[in-house]
Design a protein around this nucleic acid. Structure first.
Lengths: 310, 310
DNA sequence: CCACATCCATGCCCCCAGGTTATAGAAGCA
DNA sequence: TGCTTCTATAACCTGGGGGCATGGATGTGG
């Protein structure tokens, strides 16, 4: 009996979510597609994995047994992919957004100098996974924005920090101002990441800067840049790193620096201890070496905020 | 990154076989299909797994790393399927040919009496795997014909034996006779199973009954009943259990009992020790209980050879 | 009590991936 | 040189996986 690992991920999502609709949203597929796939999985196994009800999908006993094994299968597969990549001298580097990727050429260059026979391969992730593939083990290292949930289990080297500002609809009153104070945004509807992103989501809602009690208004939830910008265009606001002003542009959306927000810190993360990955140490060392050059290194790769913050 | 486990099996076959052509034959797919799939796998992994040459496909270092992990992945998957089946009270029973399956209703009936809440699910295998899915862990138990390679690693309960005879082209001179002596067949071209089936293949070429030195002539190699019958129709001969006369019929092929051949023994096999499979003991016990009824049990399920052997 | 929201299931359509056959190209071997 | 034996390519067909729209069942709130 054969299956696509995608089906296993589908199954895992439905099992966790307890609903096709919810899982479909999370997986970026339509609910009918999931319905069909889950049914197919059950048909293939000739075993009922869920009991359907008005309120969602509940695992059967067999479903629980299966669910208890799927994560290990997926982890085994991902590990095989990583190991194969290592054997072929490929380092998989995850990143989230084009802003952070500004640091990547620097990283790659340093790494190539240290290990010329290696190849670095980039992979972009959406905001449903702020660890840029590390949590799922899909990459060997990742350029991430701190903080993100689960970061304790990784070794992280901070690369640089950049100003956080706000994206506003071009017709928004505050868009006329060159700079905004964060408290002026407290009551605006914010675009948020999915709740599974925890501290990361909070960080980009400015939770730390709301002085205790100014609960955030959620105007939209997205995990992809296009939806994100779309939500802003249609009336929401969203915190963003300064570099977003260059990489995510839309005529009806503007970026403004914000006073009273901590900067966004960008780091290089890798799993704490994993076998046969001395190269990763090499990578981190190379980056550290480069950073010892100081601000010049930052400016060189073009990730310096375009302004000091108004 | 996602893959179909079928692709992993494809890869494993090519890696073992060292050639696309050979693996394709073994997998019952066309060589271009394999070419495409292996290339796709390499593209997905973004890693070269084989070096192509005039003489076949050789694993790269990355390929070896990958190959070392694939078997465990497949085994993990198969075990997950089995465990899920067990949790759902499904017993997967493999079998090779319709003749042996004559014993199956009996087995199922007994088993149902012992464990009414269980369901028995049948799966047929072709002759490239005489263990009927046991070796690959695709079933919980199997109705097999003895001997077969690797049988030492299973617990086997012998069920019954039936006469072995020969399938002949209807125009073959010996076809006119009601019965044949095996030594009359010594120089005929035989249809054989693939060489990977070892002792099983030998058994069905009558190796034990050739009195030392009468080397077999191989006229064709097949692993599926239709090809097998076709080969006989086009001039080869093939040993077969008596029940084949009923289950594999063709107007241009006849079955004749053969003197001087040991009977074919049919057994119920299951893995020696595996966790959580007390049910299998139950199955074996149930079958043993039934068999203690003696010949009547055999006659009842219609697996008795239609004649005493001429 | 009805209207609405929220699930999952179904039907229809499109498109691509994976399969097949036929054939080309390269390379050893007689 | 011709034959065999590899893999690669091309052209084609089909099944299934995905999308959208909609239906059916079941709670829930006004």
């Amino acid at each position: 009996m054969d299956v696509d690992t995608r089906l296993l991920r589908y199954f895992a999502a439905v099992a966790e979510e307890g609903s096709l609709t919810g899982a479909a949203r999370r997986l970026f597929v339509s609910q009918p597609a999931l319905t069909k796939q889950i049914r197919r999985l059950e048909d293939d196994l000739e075993v009922r994995l869920f009991v359907r009800s008005r309120s969602g999908m509940a695992l059967t006993e067999a479903g629980r047994e299966f669910a208890s094994r799927v994560p290990a299968l997926l982890e085994g597969w991902d590990e095989a992919v990583r190991a194969t990549g290592r054997a072929a001298r490929v380092l998989r580097l995850g990143f989230l957004d084009a802003g952070a990727v500004g640091a990547v050429p620097q990283i790659i260059a340093e790494f190539r100098r240290a290990r010329p026979e290696w190849r670095v391969e980039l992979r972009q992730f959406d905001w449903s996974d702020p660890s840029a593939g590390l949590a799922r083990g899909e990459v060997d290292a990742a350029v991430v924005r701190l903080p993100f949930p689960g970061q304790e289990s990784f070794t992280i080297r901070e690369l640089f920090a950049e100003e956080r500002g706000v994206l506003l609809p071009v017709r928004h009153p505050l868009a006329a101002r060159p700079t905004v104070d964060f408290h002026e945004l407290w009551d605006e509807p914010f675009v948020a990441a999915g709740s599974e992103t925890g501290a990361w989501r909070e960080h980009w809602l400015g939770a730390e800067e709301r002085d205790g009690e100014h609960p955030v208004r959620i105007g939209a939830v997205t995990s992809r840049p296009d939806e994100w910008l779309g939500a802003v265009a249609s009336g929401c606001v969203a915190l963003a790193p300064a570099s977003a002003a260059r990489f995510h542009t839309r005529p009806d959306v503007v970026y403004r620096p914000v006073r009273g927000l901590s900067p966004s810190r960008v780091g290089l993360a890798r799993p704490r201890r994993r076998n046969g990955e001395a190269v990763l140490d090499e990578l981190v060392r190379a980056v550290a070496r480069r950073l010892s050059g100081g601000a010049s290194a930052r400016a060189e790769v073009g990730v310096e905020p375009r302004a000091g913050g108004g």
